[in-house]
Design a protein around this nucleic acid. Sequence first.
RNA 1: GGUGGGUUCGUAUAACGGUUAGUACUCAGGAUUUUCAUUCCUGCAAUAGGAGUUCGAUUCUCCUACCCACUACCA
Length: 516
Amino acid sequence: MRRRVRFAPSPTGPLHMGGVRTALYNYLYAKQVGGDFIIRIEDTDSQRFVPGAEEYIINSLRWCGIIPDEGVDENGKVVEVASEKHPHAPYRQSQRRGIYRKYAEDLVAKGFAYYAFDTAEELDALRKEAEAKKETFTYNYATRMSLKNSLTLSEDEVAKRLESEDHWTIRFKIPENRVVVMDDLIRGHIEVNSNVLDDKVLWKRADELPTYHLANIVDDHLMEITEVIRGEEWLPSLPLHYLLYEAFGWTETQPRFAHLSLLLKPDGKGKLSKRDGDRLGFPVFPLKWVNAEGEVSRGYREDGYFPEAFVNLLALLGWNPGTEQELFTINELIPVFSLDRVVKSGAKFNPEKAKWFNQEYLRKKSTEELVSIFKENDGDKLSSFSDKYIGEVVDLMKERAHFVNEFWGLTWFFFERPTNYDPASVNKFWKDEVKVIIHKVHEFIMNINPFTKEEIEEQLHNLIMENEWPMGKVMNTLRLFIVGEGKGPGVADMMAIMGREEIDSRIKQAINTLGE
RNA sequence: GGUGGGUUCGUAUAACGGUUAGUACUCAGGAUUUUCAUUCCUGCAAUAGGAGUUCGAUUCUCCUACCCACUACCA
């Protein structure tokens, strides 16, 4: 049987990195077993709908290289009209609203659900009342017979209310005192007594929309989903979902479930939230997001992360290959991924390790690619330099960076002359013993041929050794002249890249500025 | 409060009854280098607590503690 999994986000805001991980695990599972990865938009909450969130979610997935087989077309649009490739369209639940009511009413007809006429205010009052007594109000076997619903009202009354009122709901009638036995792909055997469950609303007359539970089960059934891989927050409603499949008579084709643990704050306790990112200085979202109030949330992409690094670190947060390999591209992940190596406990996100992953990918990038990103970032300052020159600089310096956006700070002196000289370094290296020989060194350098790293290194070294000059002081002085600071790359490396004339100018400028 | 889930170095994790409890990140020290960075080496550091099962428990069972999620006409 062809395996089919889905990622079913709710467009209520930007996709959290935990959500990306859920999508990734679904994708990896589907690709490994040669199945389908489907996107479905669960927008049954008209109140919480956020414009732009759907596009954001799809763009985030695309950035990561998580490409759906079904539900979203090549242009990244959610499919609305059925076709051979997308037979279950539309993939937005708000556009499927017509199909859910009959399933809910079918349940009523079979005695597995009922109409409920209690108002939100009435239920609220009941909850408050219970709370005052330090109890919890639950709409279930114990209370349903004393509430306003088709179980307690006369047939005529029900028919009348169904006709005249527009705020009734259909509630699932949780069976009494049943032990629901479940099996989770990650957590194993779980049992729950049905008496602790409540009669969940399945369908709302007010907006003619199903709630999550109904829409989710119906669509998973209709879309022939074989595995549901979702976040741990859904584990408490798993018994309800089992009971729903049973009531519909769909247990034969019921999907298998896998509940993923949550991503936790790096420090302290609780699940990772947007605030943690702001507070601790790392992104929580894949892409930058600006909400309706103009509040900006940073994104991994805008912070300079490579999508490969982001995917890699997410994959290893709650899963491991069982080997010591840590670096995987998404395609390398596909054959080794396995649901039974997913960890049960929540994972605290470690921003330090995230940087390390990016550094590893930075090192693997070609010079051309790095130059291209560097130019995107700092093009204005690099415009008068050739790609070849920038490439040489990048090759020399990339090992020092975690992100391409650190390049300018690391390499600026290759593109601009220093305008001042770090006083501490001047004090340390610009000594009399150097001053007296600096002209000889300068002249010697100008006559090195060819002006390559190897020649400069060897000849300069020999010169200093033969004359028994202080190696450290001479070399560091030269670096100070070129960079303006006492640290930086190898002197010969810089000279070879910058060229004889530029070095000549810098030495002259430095002697001029510092005085003898 | 109730229900469910979880608990190995600071963090991510390995060890599916027998190991000096491994690896990576971080941190500390050292080596290399003309400086810085890189690289390499070394080190610090964990089975939440208590019973039980067993010749033997990180691993199985129970209790306690702590953490998390859920407890809406939200997903």
